[in-house]
Design a protein around this nucleic acid. Structure first.
Lengths: 213, 213
DNA sequence: TGAGAATATGAGCAATTACTTATATTATTC
DNA sequence: GAATAATATAAGTAATTGCTCATATTCTCA
């Protein structure tokens, strides 16, 4: 889905270089987590990875592309997870409160791993004109469309014009989990977050009277 | 509320210098809007303001403090607006669906002015260890506490332990409006956003059966 | 085994940038 | 109208940083 668009300067042929590349990515994640995007330098990454700065630039054209690589991995994970869940629901034909809960749960799981990296990526990187934002918006659009169809098929589910409800739901999911990632300290308890968010979405989606679980 | 904590290096005494300071702030807003935080340099700001770089550093100790100034202004505005609305509701003693709508409306209004500046501030500036994030969290805490008391007083309003509902509501408001600011293009129509968000919050807050308007 | 391809190295360059400082200009005060 | 304080100027510095390139090492395969 997210092909490596001119991301890798030279394609690694031998096992040795493939290890170098993954060492760089792993180091990048660590440094990013520790110092944020602005505080991360290519030399830092090379140092931490135990490779020379020259090697780094042999496989990545610039600093941004390294972070983009991490981002793509995260998005691919998100896309496949969402796709699986969505397909399941589509097979049944309509969406239920339990499904909603599963979606919230998935969103939480996806952001739980490497929160520091995620924080650095979504928070620190200047968004304007950046490539990954476009990819992100595209992924969101696809999800909204699928959810919209599902909502239309589901009896007693909210009906809006132009798919507004679907857009709202996806946005709430994304915004709240992103926010949850931001403040690592003092954050809403995980269980509480799952509970309250699911309930809020269910009340929004389904007609009153339907029991939420 | 947000006193200028060591922000201004030398306090401007004459009208001339006060104009210089405001020219700098205005220029900073423009440059920030056009180029983002990372792309903004102190020399850019001085140029745009029509003052020398030396003058800039006479009144601001560093680049960050300039942006912090803008942020404080925004937060002071937000604090006073919210306070006014909150006081109104507190005087009545309980919260209504109309109030909820007013809160959403306020949040939208606060982010409508200078969206580019806001975008640069919340998106581009590395959060880790930054001063304004603490002030922001503090403001949020105050709002949550007041809302929590209001919810407790309101019949048929959601009751949670530990103020979870109040926390959720404030978070949804903030997260969604921030997100709304992020994608200037392709954004939910303003009216639609107000409508759907208010409705979502009302359904979450109030027992089923109460009409939303 | 040796020639060529792939990979690794790191000193150093070029460009950027936040910030200083010595000096000049303007305002205020007695 | 001096003397002093406030303000403005911009050339220049020191440090950072993304990135290159000439050279060295390791691997592959005929």
């Amino acid at each position: 889905m997210f092909e490596n668009a001119s991301k890798v300067r030279k394609k690694p042929m031998q096992a040795r270089s493939r290890e170098t590349v993954s060492a760089i990515l792993e180091a990048a994640a660590q440094v990013l987590e520790a110092r944020g995007y602005a505080g991360t330098t290519t030399n830092h990454i090379a140092d931490r990875a135990g490779v020379s700065i020259g090697s780094l630039y042999q496989y990545f054209p610039n600093k941004e592309s390294i972070v983009l690589s991490l981002m793509e991995a995260h998005m691919a994970e998100a896309a496949s997870g969402t796709d699986a869940l969505m397909s399941l629901v589509e097979a049944r034909g309509c969406i239920t409160p339990d499904d909603v809960r599963e979606f919230v749960h998935l969103a939480m799981e996806l952001h739980k791993r490497e929160p520091g990296v995620h924080r650095a990526i979504v928070q620190d990187i200047p968004i304007t004109g950046k490539i990954w934002w476009e990819a992100f918006m595209n992924m969101e659009r696809i999800m909204v469309d699928r959810l919209r169809i599902l909502l239309d098929k589901t009896p007693h589910a909210r009906k809006t014009k132009g798919g507004a409800a679907a857009r709202m739901i996806i946005r709430v999911l994304e915004s709240l989990t992103h926010r949850q990632v931001m403040d690592s300290a003092d954050r809403l308890d995980q269980e509480e977050f799952l509970e309250e968010t699911s309930d809020m979405l269910c009340r929004y989606i389904f007609d009153a009277g339907m029991d939420k679980s």
